[in-house]
Write a protein that binds this DNA or RNA. Sequence first.
DNA 1: TACAATTTTCAGAAATTTCTGAAACTTAAG
DNA 2: CTTAAGTTTCAGAAATTTCTGAAAATTGTA
Lengths: 185, 185
Amino acid sequence: MKLSSQAQAFVLHFGEMGSRWGFNRTVGQMFALLTIHPSPLNAEQLAQALKISRGNVSMGLKELQAWRLIELHHQPGDRKDYFTTAGSIWDLARTVFEERRKRELDPTLSLLRQLLLNEPQDDLDAQAQEKIQEVYSLLELLEEFTNTLSKLEHQDLLKLMKLGSGIVKLLEFKSKMTGGPSRSS
Amino acid sequence: MKLSSQAQAFVLHFGEMGSRWGFNRTVGQMFALLTIHPSPLNAEQLAQALKISRGNVSMGLKELQAWRLIELHHQPGDRKDYFTTAGSIWDLARTVFEERRKRELDPTLSLLRQLLLNEPQDDLDAQAQEKIQEVYSLLELLEEFTNTLSKLEHQDLLKLMKLGSGIVKLLEFKSKMTGGPSRSS
DNA sequence: TACAATTTTCAGAAATTTCTGAAACTTAAG
DNA sequence: CTTAAGTTTCAGAAATTTCTGAAAATTGTA
């Protein structure tokens, strides 16, 4: 399990970024290593390659499974658990995206929904309520939009992402077709 | 500076979520409070309302300014600095989105670009290089797409987000118009 | 210039998160 | 059933992040 200097750099960087993406350094490194390594790896190999404890690897694998980013394999005649990343790079990106939505958006939507049930007691309260409503509307729309995106076929998603400023043209066309009012701006 | 229980809950929740959104608890709370409070607040008021030290407030304000999420105001005859959030809820969301792209995507793109300059030394290296290229292509596309989105007019963005599964129809139409091959799948 | 109000800085304290490694647990095979 | 290979757990240690508060720096006013 010696890593090329390329792989080394890749793994270390994903460790650094890990915390910005929602997991800790070693989980980031484990994920990167499983991504860049051509064959399944077992816990011992991960621990050795990343120079971390066996226990830490176990916890990291559990976390990556909770993220649905890795899957378990077995080699004939070997009792060890081997792991690979779950699907293509695109599949993985989609999964990270969905899991992050779940962790970063859903709890807030849920709380704001709760808050909006309360009747405002006074004027100040009513003003706050209004702001809460605004935030809620935006986040709800974002939730629906990201949900739509993550349900798109790979092909369609690709097309959409490649549109660039062509998006505006397409939207304008849509307005015309459905008879919506044109915007002057 | 007494907070209604609504505001209280809102602020505390944003504190909890803060770490998932890229800032720490008190920064999250400060941002929430400035969002929900109808008038500008000074450092003393923030410290008092959130029960945190004056020094912590100063650091938090610096951070929120680095995120371009707040702006400074002055009240006539008062030397204190007063702060409000910078723009509408939509403006703020857009800013958070852009800053996060900058922090979560750009450094990785930059590293991967670097790695792709190296010539693979052996076969294993070449395989790794291929994976790096795949990740790079995806992230680059994502960067361009999010960049497109964040440049859209509010109106257009709203339209796009409200399309839902209508997006597929629009993409199909686009294919037809530009003569691209139709997909069977 | 002197002064007082205000903000910023930053060393160390406190809180939180991550990691280790030994013990407990699980499981497949004889 | 027993054993050994392998995995998970978790209490405490280590590392990291956040926070405090006093001192230093800045700024507006007279």
